[in-house]
């Protein structure tokens, strides 16, 4: 399985003509953990979501190539997209509260997502749901399976969400800020869990986040986006050797416990970063 993006542009209409949110992004993802890092408005979520055609209807997408395992996404029919979305590729969003159906129990939702692409009985699906809940390290799967989303804590909800996305055995998982609504203690557990599932199943993962240190800890490769462009692509281990002033600036302006600064370094934005001329 391979994801290919070449020269992707996404524009939105505005009263003053189309405004470009993503401007000529190219990247490929194989069986690896890729992080896309950027600040709000950098186009990181749009880039990943364009792979599933989950963009707002007014978005205008252009690309030399946008392909999922050889399938041309731009030309794909809604039917082809349905066979990718939720089956071959899953999406985990920031807040499980908004992505889970409030009137279905967690178990029913996982079972449904499991049955969607298999022809099995309800009972088998329920068994599978319990097994998946156990896989996302929920201690009491039977109790959680019968709980409604509002009865679950944030971390538990996110585990259910992950179990649901894992149900159809996808090849690609897109996680869009999956832990930014969670406490630090829970965040670490969820990331460890995702790492474990991804490497055990040999899946590809695209992790979208604003948190550069977090992403570089967790991913193999990091793409840094700024104003709709990729400004730098790094091996996660090579974060300390980042070259682009934006990446370096992002790292420098973080307050840390280990290196106290009287005054935080601020980022001076160079207009040249906008057109990627360096």
């Amino acid at each position: 399985m391979k994801v290919e993006i070449a020269n992707l542009s996404i524009a939105f209409p505005s009263p003053r003509g189309p405004s470009l949110a993503v401007r000529g992004v190219s990247l490929t993802v194989g069986s690896e953990k890729l992080g896309i890092v950027g600040e709000s408005g950098s186009g990181k979520s749009l880039t990943a979501r364009s792979l599933l055609k989950l963009l707002p209807p007014e978005a205008r997408v252009r690309a030399d190539r946008l392909a999922f395992d050889g399938i041309d996404i731009l030309q794909a029919t809604e039917r082809q997209m349905r066979s990718i979305r939720g089956k071959r590729a899953g999406l985990i969003m920031q807040d499980p509260k908004f992505s889970l159906n409030p009137v279905m129990t967690a178990g029913e939702q996982i079972a449904e997502s499991w049955r969607l692409h298999r022809k099995t009985s309800k009972r088998e699906a329920r068994e599978a749901a319990l097994d998946l809940l156990a896989q996302v390290q929920i201690r009491d799967p039977a109790r959680v399976a019968d709980a409604y989303p509002h009865e679950l804590s944030g971390g538990m909800g996110q585990r259910v969400m992950i179990a649901m996305m894992m149900a159809p055995d996808p090849e690609l998982l897109i996680a869009d800020e999956p832990t930014s609504a969670l406490d630090a203690t829970v965040q670490a557990e969820i990331l460890r869990l995702m790492e474990d599932l991804v490497s055990r199943r040999g899946m590809s993962l695209i992790l979208i986040s604003h948190d550069l240190p977090l992403v570089s800890h967790f991913c193999d490769r990091v793409v840094v986006m700024y104003a709709g462009r990729v400004v730098e692509e790094l091996n996660a281990a090579g974060l300390a050797r980042a070259e682009h002033p934006y990446t370096r600036g992002l790292l420098a302006c973080l307050p840390t416990l280990s290196h106290p600064q009287a005054r935080l370094t601020t980022l001076t934005r160079d207009p040249a970063w906008m057109d990627g001329s360096n």
């Binding site: 203690t185 240190p213 416990l257």
Partner: peptide
Amino acid sequence: AELRALSTELEEP
């Protein structure tokens, strides 16, 4: 100690 460990863990590149 736990909160501190989680915070410093990410600071070391």
